[in-house]
């Protein structure tokens, strides 16, 4: 891929993101000004912006943001590798597929908050607790999308692989995984949003730093504009994460995106 197309992809994404963000802020401001809810509980954008600025200059926000993002990215990487690995394993071994599918369906709807006392007991309050909560909720989209995508690889593609006398691994590596990548990335993209949620929730439940911890702190100190400023930061993280995934995806599956005439 050319460097120019990559830059234009980035610029376009940034522009759309800025417009989107401004639209949301405008909608928020409209509700705030309409007076449907007392301003004390639904402050307007200038108040939220100044709260944001004060947290930014005091240094508490950059530190928390950095920790939360690092955790989300690490968690997402781990969950994606694990999820896709499980999907591949399911594709290779029918016994594993039949056994693990119901286990996955059983674990998936369990809310992390319901497991926290047990998890704290087993894992303590350190990084392993975060890892557990994040992976528990984040691993499913890459896994389910992966299984569905690998199962949906077209027969012609598989037969052409068979004609080339590819072995099991070669077939997986050269035919199935590339064909499944676009759908797997859709799963990873959804996983990236829930990994951000999971990190913030984990920081709320047991933590001493990060955005989630800061959210609870500010809520319990009745600093409402700062709570909303933090929520806007959470929202912006969604864009940041998607941009990162988009770049990675462009690198890996640019052929598919070009074919469907989609720059982003």
């Amino acid at each position: 891929m050319s460097a120019a197309s990559l830059t234009s992809f980035g610029a376009l994404h940034r522009l759309n993101a800025i417009v989107s963000f401004l639209l949301i802020a405008a909608a928020w401001q409209l509700v705030a000004v309409s007076g449907a809810v007392p301003a004390k509980y639904f402050p307007d954008i200038p108040a939220i912006a100044s709260a944001f600025w004060s947290m930014l200059t005091s240094g508490e926000l950059p530190g928390a943001e950095l920790r939360t993002l690092t955790r989300a990215l690490t968690g997402l990487a781990g969950a994606s590798i694990l999820g896709v690995g499980l999907a591949v394993l399911s594709d290779l071994s029918p016994v594993f597929r039949r056994g693990f599918a119901p286990v996955a369906a059983l674990i998936q709807p369990i809310p992390p908050a319901a497991l926290v006392p047990m998890a704290v007991f087993m894992l303590g309050l350190g990084p392993s607790l975060y890892a557990f909560i994040i992976i528990l909720v984040t691993v499913w989209p890459p896994y389910f999308n992966g299984v569905a995508a690998l199962a949906g690889v077209l027969g012609e593609q598989i037969r052409s692989g068979q004609m080339m006398a590819l072995g099991r691994w070669q077939m997986l590596w050269q035919i199935k995984l590339p064909a499944a990548l676009p759908e797997i990335f859709a799963g990873i993209r959804y996983a990236s949003t829930i990994s951000l949620i999971a990190v913030v929730v984990a920081e709320m439940l047991a933590g001493h730093d990060g955005l989630g911890f800061l959210l609870i702190r500010k809520a319990f100190a009745i600093r409402i504009p700062e709570v909303y400023a933090l929520m806007f930061v959470c929202a912006l993280n969604g864009i940041l994460m998607t941009a990162l995934i988009g770049l990675l995806r462009w690198q890996l599956t640019g052929w598919h995106m070009r074919m469907t005439e989609q720059p982003a």
């Binding site: 926290v116 006392p117 047990m118 704290v120 007991f121 087993m122 894992l123 303590g124 309050l125 350190g126 709320m204 439940l205 047991a206 933590g207 001493h208 911890f213 609870i216």
Partner: peptide, 17 residues
Amino acid sequence: TEVQGGPAVVAAIASGS
């Protein structure tokens, strides 16, 4: 270490963390 909820404090102690 700050945690949310009394049961989490108890779990932290019972687990040795």
